[in-house]
């Protein structure tokens, strides 16, 4: 069989992990088992934390954006102190701080973390692989408009691009501009238009 390393769909199978554990995998297991043995935590607590992390999705961020579009006093609070305003919606960013940056007719914002992969996980869930790639991290600060074009984002002439490098204690969410023709929609319908990428700044919201 010449192609028995390919799945029926023609893609290669992921190889089995027959290699020994890496140093860091051993360290993680050793630390976790010690914490459980010493009664600091339990396997069930660790599992429930993993489930809580997995449950976070861009729907959280979309609810924040839709509320900012429909509730002027919330929008004002969000721009003044996004950590506090989103905590009031039940999205606790923990020890980090959140800054909301707003797209307008004149300004388009983009988020990147050149040093690692800082991302507002409580609002957007796990970052996509490309967000952590060296290509995205290095190119976004160097040629943001080319990166935007590859994501299919065309900005009107005269738009200023503001790139935000998430270098320290802040996390960022882009509040995209509300699409035209959505005047009659309620917050739930609006939230369905808000994509993950529109909150990173590499996309625009869907049109209704």
């Amino acid at each position: 069989m010449p192609h028995d390393h390919l799945s029926p769909s023609g893609h290669p199978y992921r190889p089995d992990q027959d290699h020994p554990l890496t140093y860091w995998q051993q360290m993680e297991i050793a630390l976790r088992e010690l914490l459980i043995e010493k009664g600091v935590t339990t396997a069930a607590e660790i599992q429930s934390q993993i489930e809580a992390m997995d449950a976070r999705t861009p729907a959280n961020g979309a609810a924040v954006v839709a509320r900012a579009w429909t509730d002027p006093s919330f929008r004002e609070a969000l721009m003044a102190d996004a950590s506090e305003a989103t905590r009031g919606m039940g999205f606790d960013i923990g020890p980090m701080r959140l800054i909301a940056v707003e797209n307008t007719a004149e300004v388009h914002n983009m988020i990147v973390c050149t040093l690692c992969s800082c991302y507002p996980r409580n609002l957007l869930g796990l970052p996509p692989d490309w967000y952590k790639s060296r290509a995205y991290r290095s190119r976004t600060v160097r040629e943001p408009r080319k990166v935007l074009a590859e994501f299919g984002v065309e900005l009107p002439p005269g738009t200023t691009v503001r790139v935000h490098d998430s270098t320290a204690d802040m996390r960022y969410i882009v509040i995209p501009a509300r699409p035209a023709g959505t005047e009659g929609l309620d917050a739930a319908a609006l939230a369905a238009l808000v994509t993950r990428d529109s909150m990173i700044g590499t996309g625009l919201p869907r049109q209704p």
Binding site: V141, T160, R162, H164, D165
Partner: peptide, 19 residues
């Protein structure tokens, strides 16, 4: 300021948190 003559669009901006 960051990229000199190589800047893609000179008036675009880059914000970063610096101690």
């Amino acid at each position: 300021e960051v990229w000199g003559d190589q800047a893609e669009t000179p008036d675009d901006t880059l914000d970063a948190e610096i101690y």
